[in-house]
Computed example of a mutant assay.
Amino acid sequence: MGKFLVILLVLSTAIAGGTIYYLQIYGYYFEVVATPGKDVKLMPKDGTAPVAIAYTDFEAIDADSSPIRYRGCFKTNLNLEDLKQEYSASAKVEPRTAPDWFTCFDAQKIGAALEEGRAIAFLSAKNVGFGVDRVVAITDQGDGYIWHEFNDCGEKAYDGTVVGEECPQRPEN
């Protein structure tokens, strides 16, 4: 009877571990359907509404389980220096890792390009979800990457700090 209980315990642990792994890496993600003219936008320096830029080869993933699971990749033939003159740079320049199976988005490679000055991170949109901004990084080769980052309000709200009056009201579930 003892062997049976041990085998049952080990088997149920393995099944639970495998299920948790699958859900974290694959289960919650879905492919984002491309919407030409709406997928890739940058925030002008004058603070007006985000402006769509020209792009090709768009692919992205997202998940309803977290506001920061969005990742995207695209190509653009726009000049990086021209973009730098017209659009707002982002203070958040640390791309979040993506699941290994989403091969176009390599956070270490993107981060290295940003550090070396071969890419620039731009603010795409503020508060795409409560306390979450969209960031777009574009390399000097025309490769583009998109991810979500917590803004100051999001960092405070999600770590339990008092948010304060400068942040919008958090939506109720």
Results as ranks from 00 to 15, higher is better:
Glu81Val: 11
Phe4Lys: 14
Val33Cys: 00
Thr76Asn: 06
Thr161Pro: 00
Gly144Gln: 03
Val132His: 02
Ile138Gln: 09
Arg71Lys: 15
Ala16Met: 08
Ile146Thr: 11
Pro44Cys: 10
Trp147Thr: 06
Val33Ser: 13
Asp159Leu: 09
Asn127Leu: 02
His148Pro: 01
Ile25Trp: 02
Arg69Leu: 15
Ile120Ala: 07
Glu116Tyr: 00
Ala91Gln: 12
Phe30Ser: 15
Tyr158Arg: 12
Gly144His: 04
Tyr55Ser: 14
Thr56Tyr: 01
Glu81Gly: 09
Glu172Ser: 14
Ile7Gly: 01
Cys167Met: 02
Ile68Met: 12
Gly160Trp: 05
Tyr145Cys: 05
Gly160Leu: 06
Lys45Phe: 07
Val128Phe: 03
Glu149Phe: 01
Tyr55Ala: 10
Ala91Ile: 12
Ala49Arg: 12
Ala107Ser: 15
Phe122Gly: 04
Ser90Gly: 08
Ser12Gly: 02
Glu165His: 07
Arg170Leu: 13
Leu11Val: 15
Asn151Tyr: 02
Ala98Trp: 09
Tyr21Lys: 11
Arg118Asn: 15
Tyr55Phe: 15
Leu80Cys: 10
Cys104Val: 08
Ile25His: 12
Thr19Asn: 11
Gly47Gln: 10
Pro95His: 07
Asp133Cys: 05
Gln108Arg: 13
Leu123Phe: 01
Val33Pro: 00
Ala63Ile: 08
Gly144Asp: 05
Glu59Met: 12
Glu116Asp: 14
Asn79Pro: 01
Ser66Leu: 07
Phe105Ala: 06
Thr35Gln: 13
His148Ala: 10
Val163Ser: 07
Gln169Ala: 15
Glu94Trp: 01
Arg118Gln: 13
Val93Trp: 00
Glu166Arg: 11
Ala157Ser: 14
Leu23Ser: 06
Val163Lys: 04
Val135Ile: 15
Ala119Ser: 11
Val10Lys: 01
Leu11Pro: 00
Ile61Ala: 08
Glu165Gln: 13
Ser90Lys: 06
Leu123Cys: 02
Ile146Tyr: 02
Gly131Val: 05
Glu59Pro: 00
Arg118Trp: 00
Leu11Asp: 00
Ala16Gly: 08
Ile20Pro: 00
Ser65Tyr: 06
Glu59Val: 12
Gly47Arg: 10
Lys156Arg: 15
Asp46Glu: 13
Gly117His: 03
Ala157Cys: 01
Lys109Tyr: 04
Ala112His: 09
Asn79Cys: 06
Glu116Thr: 11
Arg71Met: 09
Asp57Tyr: 02
Thr97Leu: 09
Leu23Ala: 07
Gln169Asp: 14
Gly154Leu: 03
Met43Gly: 01
Ala98Leu: 11
Gln141Val: 10
Glu94Gly: 05
Leu78Glu: 15
Leu8Arg: 02
Ile120Arg: 10
Arg134Leu: 11
Val32Trp: 05
Ala121Lys: 04
Val10Pro: 01
Ala107Val: 09
Gly164His: 04
Leu5Gln: 07
Val10Asn: 01
Phe105Trp: 03
Pro171Glu: 10
Glu115Ala: 13
Leu8His: 01
Asp100Phe: 12
Lys126Gly: 08
Tyr87Cys: 08
Ala112Asp: 14
Arg170Asp: 07
Glu172Tyr: 06
Ser90Leu: 09
Val132Phe: 03
Thr103Val: 14
